[in-house]
């Protein structure tokens, strides 16, 4: 009942696109966009590597073989046994790069889910209720923005200790601000719309109004931010691990490999090159997809 009434009050342009219409729009836009294709391809490659790592990696990423350490890649005088060469402990670089995708994607995705949930909830509450709650939440965001991310993250990692779970926690806690701000801004505008007022005047609880009517209208923004934020989180995790504050150095991660490879820059270029290429492919793919989605959902910012 409430939806019906709300619907008649909405002008067609305000109605969120639903069902077939949305998917059709997405499909058509995707087919036309070269950058969306490239983005999907790059992300697809990385996802495949992560899922099928045991089948794709030629060696055990942990297996050390000191007799064949620091071998160059196959085209630079190495053997086809280790296509991308080996590191100082004789571990296969290609296998470690493939397994590294697992950590990066896991951290990026989990942290994004956490930050997105916290940020969207706080943004919805701040924008819808306004007043003191809004003030409190937004001041909290301001304080957090005064700290450079890496500073805040290193500080929290210092308190919690390093490790995979803590790094997800840190990124999840610090990442909520952007969702909170964007969602709040949109809710402020939505709050004045007739269909929200209709829902409220029909006696819907704030929870129902927020989840059934407000949230669907901000969900596309959340999705766009989420895609771009996964990319940022992947870089952040690699940075923290590079600084020695992140994931255990024994676990194959791209940031950890770069930190080790740094010591061999003058002779063995490959150790610090390929993990970086892997990070860039992943992040580039996610950024391309994110930009495409932003243009699709918000034509005003389209370039």
């Amino acid at each position: 009942m409430s939806e019906q009434l709300a619907d008649t009050k909405r002008s067609p342009s305000e109605r969120p696109i639903k069902g077939d219409g949305l998917w059709k729009k997405v499909r058509i836009s995707f087919k036309k966009s070269k950058s969306a294709w490239l983005g999907a391809l790059l992300v697809g490659v990385v996802l495949t590597a992560a899922v099928f790592a045991p089948a794709l990696a030629p060696h055990d990423p942990y297996q050390q073989d000191l007799s064949s350490s620091l071998r160059p890649p196959v085209w630079d005088g190495g053997s086809s046994q280790h296509p991308l060469g080996t590191d100082h402990l004789g571990r296969d670089v290609l296998s470690r790069v493939i397994y590294g995708s697992r950590i990066s994607l896991l951290v990026g995705f989990c942290a994004c889910l956490m930050a997105g949930t916290v940020g969207t909830t706080l943004g919805l509450v701040a924008g819808y209720f306004g007043g003191r709650v809004d003030d409190l939440i937004m001041r909290l965001a301001d304080i957090q923005l005064a700290f450079p991310f890496i500073l805040l993250a290193t500080a929290i990692m210092f308190v919690l200790g390093s490790g995979l779970r803590n790094i997800i926690l840190v990124l999840g806690i610090t990442g909520w601000v952007i969702y909170g701000r964007v969602v709040r801004g949109q809710v402020l505008a939505l709050r004045e719309k007739e269909f929200i007022e209709a829902s409220r005047s029909l006696g819907a609880t704030p929870f129902r109004t927020l989840t059934r009517h407000v949230f669907p209208n901000v969900s596309s923004s959340v999705l766009v931010i989420g895609t771009l934020e996964i990319a940022r989180f992947i870089i952040s995790e690699a940075s923290l691990t590079f600084l020695g504050l992140g994931v255990d150095p024994n676990i194959p991660t791209w940031g950890g490999m770069l930190a080790e490879g740094r010591q061999y820059l003058s002779g063995q270029w490959w150790i610090a090159t390929f993990p970086g290429v892997a990070i860039m492919i992943t992040v580039l793919g996610l950024n391309l997809l994110g930009d495409w989605m932003r243009d699709l959902f918000d034509p005003r910012t389209a370039s």
């Binding site: 770069l258 270029w269 950024n287």
Partner: peptide, 16 residues
Amino acid sequence: LGQSMPVFWLGLLLIL
């Protein structure tokens, strides 16, 4: 590319 490249990797590449 500038937004997709981790800062520290860019630094390592420049040194290399």
